[in-house]
């Protein structure tokens, strides 16, 4: 019961802010809504028993990535938002319809799963990961089984960092 209330509230907030992100006229407002969205997603992770990931979500996404967005939005000080002038070649309606089709498809699959919940609805391992061990579990998996991907990811970040600096330089 408690979980249901929490889930529906969070879901509503997440979707609401997501809609605001893509509809806001002012890019800075968009960024703000994105932060709110990420914070509620983090809350959802807590609900799912993934505290470590929730905190990481806040630190990395909200604290790092979105700040970067905010900086860029401020650097790219637009006099005239791109949406201001209409472009006839653009078929936004088509995109919208296309997206809704995807949504319908995914929801259909999911609801189909609800009707026949045999393998999905009933948890195979019903216990959620024990709260106190969450960090340990993730850490253990990360540093044993997935050590190589972990290192690759760190290389990826390094490359991205170098790339970003090179791109942001005055002369390409």
């Amino acid at each position: 019961m408690g979980e249901a209330i929490a889930f529906y509230t969070l879901a509503a907030l997440i979707l609401g802010f997501a809609v605001l992100v893509i509809t806001a006229r002012n890019t800075v407002h968009s960024v703000l809504f994105l932060v709110a969205n990420f914070l509620f997603v983090a809350a959802l992770y807590v609900l799912l028993g993934a505290q470590f990931l929730a905190v990481i979500q806040v630190i990395v996404y909200a604290g790092g990535i979105v700040v970067l967005y905010l900086f860029v939005v401020m650097l790219v000080n637009l006099k005239r938002p791109p949406e201001a002038h209409r472009d006839r070649r653009r078929k936004a309606g088509l995109g919208l319809a296309f997206s809704l089709v995807i949504l319908a498809e995914v929801v259909a699959i999911a609801v189909f799963g609800l009707v026949q919940p045999a393998h999905l609805a009933a948890p195979k391992a019903p216990l959620p990961p024990e709260a106190a061990d969450n960090v340990q579990q993730v850490g253990w998996a990360l540093y044993t089984q997935y050590l190589v991907p972990f290192e690759v990811a760190s290389m990826l970040l390094l490359v991205a960092m170098v790339g970003a600096i090179v791109l942001a330089r005055r002369e390409l």
Partner: peptide, 18 residues
């Protein structure tokens, strides 16, 4: 007493920047 208490502090500090 959060099991990620210290990280929690880091994360709320990250929000304050906004």
């Amino acid at each position: 007493d959060l099991n990620v208490g210290l990280l929690y502090i880091v994360s709320v500090a990250a929000i304050g920047v906004y």
